[in-house]
Amino acid sequence: MSDLEIADRLRRDGLRLYIGPFVTRIRVTLPGLAEHIRFLYTDTPLDDSDGLIDFDIKLGPPPGIRRWLGLGATVYVDDVMQFMPFDPAIAVPMFEWGINWCVFNRPHQYLILHAAVLERGGHAVIMPGPPGSGKSTLCAALSLRGWRLLSDEVAMIRPSDRMILPLPRPVGLKEESIEVIRRFEPSAFVSRPWPGTKKGTIAHMRMPPESVARAGEMASPAWIVCPKYTSGATSRFEPIHRSQAMLYAADDAFNYSLLARVGFETLADVVESCGCFEFTYDDLDAAVKAFDELVPTMSTPMEGVGA
């Protein structure tokens, strides 16, 4: 599809994208955004079946008098305004946060942790991390070096079998991380930067095509790694106690307490089956190397750690 066709569909009935297990309908009635959305979601399959819509997102002018005055933009979910009106100049990051809003607040059929998830050889690493821990940067780097990206924001765990569902979406990069990733992998598809958001300057890295192509393949949790970017540090895994890993993961989760007992039991099982580490790092190449060494050593018995 050309930008023109995409813009036309965005304006009318909307584009329906398969974002992981969710059909997301996207409508955009502001001009000039089609090329950016196409840039990020170019590999994402379209749903033309007129089937069920899980998330319905619209980016457009705010309602009421502001619309006629041409003031600002906002994000609607199910046609209900979800964000306070904002400057259209930051429409793309706000649009991505609109999808986040749906993912964080809706699919309570899954346990949803705030963590990046990557997979290699069928084993998934869950990386919870508060802002500043370097979670997204490390996640982007790993996804450019052979780890399959499941998500840079959410570990979506199915309570029935404790499997993690992929949700391939662009990786959000903040401030210096944008340049770090561009230097780390010049061929990475990093969007233009969007300054002026409440989190500073934001850019998005398009998810690798493999990540999108394998969106239907779940992964079983093998490690919980809490990244800690530390200037000048050498890459190092430090085992932590399972109870501590459980707290890290639960602390920032989106619906751990909402799911009550199901949330506790699911997370406890996941933690039980994982090797748990804190990971300090500075240099990304060295960090990737350390992660690659995780695979052979850590997929073998982990009982010793944190037990």
Binding site: G51, L52, R106, P107, H108, Q109, N255, L258
Partner: peptide, 21 residues
């Protein structure tokens, strides 16, 4: 009821249970 619709029901039940609690 189609399974994809039932997923929405499961999610809604979880939320309502939380409210009641």
């Amino acid at each position: 009821i189609p399974e994809r619709v039932r997923d929405h029901f499961v999610a809604a039940h979880a939320e309502a249970a939380q409210h009641a609690r």
